[in-house]
Simulated scan of single mutants.
Amino acid sequence: MSGQRTPHWWFDGSTPPLWARLLTPIYAAVTALRRFCYRRGLRAQVHPGVPVIVVGNLVGGGTGKTPLTVALVEHLQRAGFTPGVASRGYGRADAKTARWVEPQSGPAMVGDEPMLIAARTGARVRVDADRVAAAQALAAAGCDVVVCDDGLQHYRLARDVEIEVQDVRRRYGNGRLLPAGPLREPLERAADCTFRVLNLGQPAGTEVVDPSVVTAAAGQEWPMWLDVGNAWPLAGGRGVPLAAFAGQRVHAVAGIGEPERFFVTLRAAGIAVVPHVFADHHGYRLDDFDFGSALPVLMTEKDAVKCRAFAQPGWHAVPISARLPEAFWNALLERFRPAA
């Protein structure tokens, strides 16, 4: 089963097709005009009255924003804050209706990523295509920090901190704007961000780069490792270490921005992967799992929130947690401490 994939020419060095190269100047002009209007005050920005942290990326596709959002909320909670999360809730039904994410909410109504974030953190999560309205609702509900998931280009929401997330393997691809390349905005936009986080896509301790801060031309880069937790049975029961599947063949299910990252994680644990790639935000049905053999099924947490209602024995969710240097958290929290 094949899912939606990013165009190969974004990252493999090949020449983009003519139609993409012809459309790129149009996209560039529209985005430049939009940025100009906000920077010159021709379009107003709105601040909700509490600090706003925006997590996003400059490239299309998955870069690890959701694990970082979860980690941000958890660290803010431990520091004594009451953070809330504003999200568009991509792929949900009736996307024009704003909703709170509740335990009884279904991913079809609020989106898979908001469901995952709410379940992992217990924080208030508001889904709304209008991020300003979502942030205002969170502030009114008692949240003293708003974390905006995937909102770097949502300029109407004024923000105090911007965090750009990059996939360390892909970076900015061919450096072109959409659709000839993966960039949502020009490269110089990265210099405006408060922090740049590099998703290494591997557990801490296996890094291939210096884990200290790397000084780059556009600012500081902070490494982010992805640690794997116990695999949890979707039908209920206790979690088991991922190592319990070492030496076995499993059906690996991924409907995320970068499915191969999940498969690599499983292979690194000694698991023989039979990969099944679905479109990002795919709405699963039971017959999607007619794989022809009764092997264990391992899937991402994001996929699992949409499969619990019809989960079968042997299906497991594999949670991923983001880990960043303590210096990053210190630098972030320093921005919320009152001036002496």
Results as ranks from 00 to 15, higher is better:
G314C: 12
I271F: 07
Q4L: 14
L178G: 09
L157W: 10
A44S: 14
R99S: 02
P338L: 01
L298E: 11
D160F: 09
E301K: 04
C143F: 04
W9L: 08
H251G: 01
A272T: 15
M299G: 05
H251S: 05
V125P: 01
P313M: 13
M299Q: 06
H281P: 00
L200V: 05
V168Q: 09
S212C: 11
M109W: 06
H276D: 12
G13Q: 02
R34S: 08
G237S: 08
G239I: 14
L198V: 06
E74R: 13
W222G: 09
R21H: 04
Y155F: 15
D227W: 13
Y27Q: 12
S212K: 12
L266W: 01
V55P: 03
D167P: 00
F310P: 00
V168R: 00
A140G: 08
V305C: 11
V50D: 04
I117Y: 08
C37Y: 08
H281C: 11
L266H: 10
C307H: 05
H154V: 03
N230W: 10
V70N: 08
G64V: 07
E102K: 08
D149I: 00
G122S: 09
V132H: 07
A28C: 05
D210C: 07
V277H: 09
M224L: 10
Y172E: 15
A133V: 04
N230D: 15
L68R: 03
S87K: 00
G91T: 11
A322M: 08
G49L: 05
D288L: 01
D167K: 00
N199C: 01
A93I: 06
P313E: 13
Q202S: 12
D280A: 11
V145D: 03
A254Q: 04
R78A: 14
V250R: 05
R40K: 03
R176I: 02
A158M: 10
D130K: 14
L178S: 09
L18W: 14
A279R: 01
P296C: 14
P186Q: 11
A327L: 09
F245S: 12
N57P: 00
F262M: 14
P16F: 02
V214W: 05
H251L: 13
G122N: 11
P179T: 02
Y284A: 04
S105W: 08
V85D: 02
R35G: 09
L332S: 06
A269F: 03
E207Y: 04
L198F: 12
T15D: 15
E326N: 05
D287H: 12
E207H: 02
H282T: 09
V168D: 14
R171P: 00
D290Y: 05
H47T: 11
A139Q: 13
D192G: 05
T97H: 10
D128G: 02
A98H: 07
